[in-house]
Computed example of a mutant assay.
Amino acid sequence: MSTDWGTVIVAVSLFILLSPGLLFQIPARTRVMEFGNMSTSGIAILVHAVIYFCIFTILVVAIQVHIHF
């Protein structure tokens, strides 16, 4: 019996990639998008959470990513 690690791997990788200010930030303080500024705001956190939820839902529910070890 093996467990499905697809959702865990997708969730962790998206969390790392979509952390506001790490790779990019939408919206930034002075522009629409900034790269690697390591600062964030409340609206940027909300935008990144919505993007995270949309991509996670598409990958897990619609595409049904499954990884079994």
Rank of each mutant, 00 (worst) to 15 (best):
V12P: 00
Y52N: 00
V65Y: 04
S19M: 15
T30A: 13
W5Y: 12
T57M: 14
I63F: 09
S2W: 13
V65G: 02
A11G: 06
I9G: 09
V50S: 08
C54N: 11
V60D: 11
I51K: 02
L46S: 12
T40E: 00
T7D: 15
G36P: 01
A11W: 11
R31L: 15
V8A: 15
F56H: 08
S39C: 05
T7P: 14
V32Y: 13
Y52M: 06
I51Y: 05
S19P: 04
R29A: 12
A44V: 00
L59W: 00
I45G: 13
L14S: 00
A28S: 07
S2I: 05
I63W: 09
V60S: 12
Y52G: 00
H48R: 09
P27Q: 00
H66Y: 10
T30W: 15
T57N: 14
D4K: 07
F56T: 03
V32F: 15
V12Y: 06
V10K: 07
L46G: 10
P27E: 03
W5G: 01
I67G: 05
C54H: 09
T30P: 09
L59E: 03
V61E: 09
G6T: 01
Q25M: 03
V10A: 14
A44T: 04
V61R: 12
P27D: 04
S19N: 14
S41V: 02
T40R: 02
I58H: 09
V47S: 12
S13I: 07
T57R: 14
V12F: 07
S41H: 05
F56M: 07
F15Y: 14
G42V: 01
H68D: 08
N37A: 08
G6K: 00
S41E: 03
T30I: 08
V60Y: 08
A49L: 12
V12I: 07
V8S: 14
I55C: 05
L59H: 01
I26D: 04
M1D: 12
Q25P: 02
T40P: 06
L22V: 05
F56A: 08
G21E: 02
